[in-house]
Structures are given as C-alpha cells and as structure tokens.
C-alpha cells in the first residue's frame, strides 16, 4: 500500500527541505520512496508542489486528484488550491499564514476569506500557526520543519528517527533551530 504526501507552498518557503527530510526518514524505515520536486522558474514566489510517496514499490512519482493521504500546506491559499488532491478521509495540515499572490496584490483578484473553515466543511484540516512556532524556535524560515514536526506525530515513525534525519539533512549551522522547530511542531496539542 502506497502512502502519498503532498507538500504545497510558495516558492522560497522551504518545501524542498521538508520533502527531503520526509523522504530520508521513510527510507530509513525500509520503504521504497519517490520524491518529486520543483526547481527553476516556478520557484520564484510561485505555487510550488512536491510529492513524497512511499510503500513496497512506488512507480509514479506524482500524486493525482483524490490520491493524497496527507497534504502539508505551508500557506492557506495553497492548501485550498490543493484540496482536490486530498483522498477521501485524508488530512490537511495547514499553516495559517497568508501570503498574497501577485493577482491579489495588483487587485485583479481577491484572497478568499475563511479558507480554513471552508475546507473543514468537507475535509479534515489541522490548522497550525507555524510562523509563530518557527519564530519561537529562533528563525521564521523554520516553518517547514515545524510542519514536518506536526505531521511526524501522526505517523508510526519514532521521534528519534526523525531527529536523526534532520541531523543528516540540515546544515549544521541551522541544526539547533530546526531541532527546536521540529520539537515544537511535534508537541503541538
């Protein structure tokens, strides 16, 4: 049985690092893994999507409509955009941070209101103020690892296994902040 986790956010928020921590953690559990990333132009402040799939044998690296067990959203609007990808019975873990896309900034479109509540009408969504927790950990850029922490709690993988991968994936200079961020996410009530 393949597990599909979709990570969505805005270019520059660190979705790549999140997908790498996740990918490296699940291989240490002995699964076959595929991680699909986005590089290049779309990274420049645009919507970014990465996929992590693991199981006995994974073929396609991408996740389709109605297939994601978990969606890890770094921004509200991106959570809303990704909603169709959620499997029936799946869960969205969403950072409550809002970032205005250019069409909203220029006034060509409006940022939808009450996104969290709207998603919750049809699907399970855990809201997280990851920005606040990242700030508490010591760097607002650690939003990604906070969210990984929240998600880690819902898996069978041991706390220590995650910590080990973070140690081997994150540059040493940012390790303390990231470990703290992970802990804050993991222990979120």
């Amino acid at each position: 049985m393949t597990k599909s986790i979709m990570i969505v956010g805005v270019g520059g928020q660190g979705t790549l690092l999140a997908s790498r921590i996740l990918g490296n953690t699940v291989i240490s559990e002995g699964y076959d893994v595929k991680v699909s990333e986005v590089h290049g132009m779309s990274q420049r402040g645009g919507s970014v999507v990465t996929y992590v799939k693991f199981g006995d044998k994974v073929y396609s690296p991408i996740i389709g409509i109605g297939e994601a067990d978990i969606i890890l959203a770094f921004e509200q609007l991106e959570a809303y955009r990704a909603l169709p990808y959620l499997k029936k019975g799946g869960t969205i873990i969403a950072n409550t941070q809002k970032m205005n896309p250019m069409p909203v900034i220029t006034g060509a479109a409006e940022y939808p209101e009450n996104i969290i509540e709207k998603i919750q009408q049809s699907s399970s969504l855990i809201p997280v103020d990851a920005l606040e927790l990242a700030e508490k950990a010591g760097n607002i850029k650690a939003v990604n690892v906070v969210l990984i922490g929240v998600m880690a709690k819902s898996t069978d993988i041991a706390y220590e296994t995650w910590v080990e991968t973070i140690k081997s994936t994150v540059p040493p200079k940012f390790l303390d902040v990231n470990l703290k961020a992970f802990e804050l996410g993991y222990n979120l009530k």
Binding site: V10, R44, G66, L77, R81, L83, L86, V104, A109, K118
Partner: peptide, 18 residues
C-alpha cells in the same frame, strides 16, 4: 477520477514573481 472535494470559488493564481 476518485471522489474528491473542490473549492467552491475561484482560487487566485500564484504565478512566479521577481
């Protein structure tokens, strides 16, 4: 496609920017 939820309004695009 499998069963899935859809937003009930238009979602603004987020094109890449400088």
């Amino acid at each position: 496609l499998p069963e899935h939820a859809e937003p009930k309004e238009n979602i603004p695009m987020r094109p890449p920017v400088m």
